[in-house]
């Protein structure tokens, strides 16, 4: 199950505005890829180009090795979850979910069986919800209906455009967990758009970080985190201390990236600084501490028991092995 998705030199234009430029991307069959980026970076446009909802100006789109660049959305073997859900307000839950099946002219008995299967898949009790109107449902329930509707047609590729951006954090986390389980169980290829890096690592085997219509870096989350291609990746994908490399005597311009969890107090690290603590925040499993030094504010994640408070003058630093240099 699942088909690979590939984009070659894809560009998308809205009038004169180049929304996507020179996109090259390969998603393996059954893989989960997250398109991550700030708003306006083109990630939704990229998803719509895969779905066939936005025409590409140049380049090619392949699904399962077949060129689908000029195929309409209904012939691409995909399914999609929209940011505003796009449930059909004139149909009840059953008919919403059955929509794609009706189009395939399946017999009523089969439609019913599959709708029940899909509703159970997303943990909605069919008996209780089938005949409800969609506006009678809570936000989380509507999400589940939308997901059931997308999954019931057994898509080879499931596209999700920030589907959980408008719901409570708790429900969002639960739905993300369930989506991941469904992804593993059903084996479809998944492309998930979000601006939230926490969601991104929750769902993605791979992350493609986008900026201004281009993919800046693609890789496993740990690759982006440990070996960011540039400053933007380092900052957007996790918290980072970014200081001019010259400050560490590492000549040749560029910047040094140090993750807050690698910053230590005392202990004779390779690079030593002295500064003043300006903020301490309790964050459940660590303390987030901000230290001002040499005109920079350093972030450090410290053990909860660390005896430190605002105003303290501290010696701190980090080891050479924890420093990653980027050009720009």
């Amino acid at each position: 199950m699942g088909l690979s998705v590939e984009l070659k030199d894809v560009a998308v234009k809205y009038g004169d505005f180049l929304a996507l430029k020179n996109i090259n991307l390969h998603v393996e069959a059954g893989e989960g890829l997250v398109l991550l980026g700030p708003s306006g970076s083109g990630k939704s446009t990229l998803l719509r180009a895969v779905a066939g909802l936005t025409p590409v100006a140049s380049g090619r789109v392949y699904i399962g090795g077949n060129d689908v660049t000029y195929l309409p959305p209904d012939r691409r073997k995909i399914s999609m979850l929209f940011q505003d859900l796009a449930l059909f307000p004139h149909l009840n839950v059953f008919e919403n979910v059955a929509f794609g099946l009706r189009l395939r002219h399946l017999p009523d008995e089969e439609v019913r069986k599959r709708v029940v299967w899909a509703l159970e898949l997303v943990r909605l009790d069919p008996a209780q919800f089938m005949s409800r109107r969609v506006h009678q449902l809570s936000g989380g329930q509507q999400q589940r209906v939308a997901l059931a509707r997308a999954l019931v047609v057994e898509p080879e590729v499931l596209l999700l455009d920030e589907p959980f951006s408008h719901i409570d954090l708790d429900i969002k986390n639960r739905l993300l967990g369930e989506l991941k389980i469904l992804h593993n169980k059903l084996g479809f290829t998944l492309i998930y758009v979000t601006h939230d890096r926490f969601e991104a690592v929750e769902i993605g085997d791979k992350v493609a970080l986008m900026k201004a219509g281009e993919i800046v870096q693609v890789g496993k989350p740990v690759e982006l985190y440990k070996r960011p291609k540039n400053r933007f990746v380092a900052e957007f994908f996790g918290e980072a201390n970014i200081i001019p490399a010259s400050l560490l005597g590492a000549g040749r311009g560029g910047y040094a990236v140090v993750r807050p969890e690698d910053v230590v107090i005392g202990n004779n690290p390779t690079y030593k600084f002295r500064g003043q603590v300006i903020d301490v925040t309790f964050l459940w499993h660590y303390l987030k501490v901000e230290i001002q030094s040499n005109g920079h504010i350093f972030k450090a994640y410290l053990d909860l028991e660390t005896p430190i408070s605002v105003g303290d003058a501290v010696d701190f630093g980090f080891d050479a092995k924890d420093v990653y240099l980027v050009e720009e």
Partner: peptide, 16 residues
């Protein structure tokens, strides 16, 4: 009318 229900129908296999 919003565009998105139409788009949803399209990706679910509906012709224009």
């Amino acid at each position: 009318l919003s565009e998105s229900p139409v788009n949803a129908a399209r990706v679910l296999g509906a012709s224009r």
